[in-house]
């Protein structure tokens, strides 16, 4: 077994870049048996402070304006963390959607092969060609959030 790095990304993303999917091509050589995706971002949470309080207040006044805001009275809304949420998705070289890991941990490792796949992805034969990695920036509340992705191919 040997591994080959097929794609890396190490760059900051800013709040203005949220609410979009960024696609990256991944050239997969022949005889690749498995793909691994190491994905992380940092920080996860916006620290308490003026930015946090302003963002929370803006969110609540937009989505729960008076009189509905009364329904939040007594709830510890100020203790709800504001977090970055970024996820990765994958398409095969024939454009089939393989899946997405839509979950919160900021450090994730995924494996995809014909026989098995990490939850969120479907087991898929790793065919030669141009695959596509999607980075979904659902929420970027820190300026910036640093994103790291490393996709490796595993060969016999």
């Amino acid at each position: 077994m040997n591994e080959q790095i097929l794609f890396t990304l190490d760059r900051p993303f800013r709040p203005a870049e949220q609410n979009q999917t960024y696609f990256f091509p991944i050239m997969v050589p022949a005889r690749c048996e498995k793909l691994t995706i190491d994905f992380s971002y940092d920080p996860k949470q916006l620290a308490d402070g003026e930015v946090f309080r302003n963002m929370l207040a803006a969110c609540l006044s937009k989505y729960m304006p008076p009189p509905y805001s009364q329904e939040l009275e007594g709830l510890p809304v100020e203790k709800i963390p504001l977090v970055n949420l970024l996820t990765v998705s994958l398409d095969a070289s024939d454009r089939r959607y393989i899946g997405c890991a839509h979950r919160h941990p900021p450090r994730q490792r995924h494996e995809i092969s014909a026989g098995s796949a990490s939850r969120g992805f479907r087991p898929t034969e790793i065919q030669e060609g141009t695959w596509r990695l999607g980075l979904q920036c659902h929420a970027i509340v820190t300026d910036p959030v640093q994103v790291n992705i490393c996709v490796k191919g595993v060969f016999q």
Partner: peptide, 13 residues
């Protein structure tokens, strides 16, 4: 359709 939206619940509204 009227859940609290981003960033508390991303895209929920």
């Amino acid at each position: 359709p009227f859940a609290i939206g981003s960033p508390l619940c991303t895209g929920c509204c």
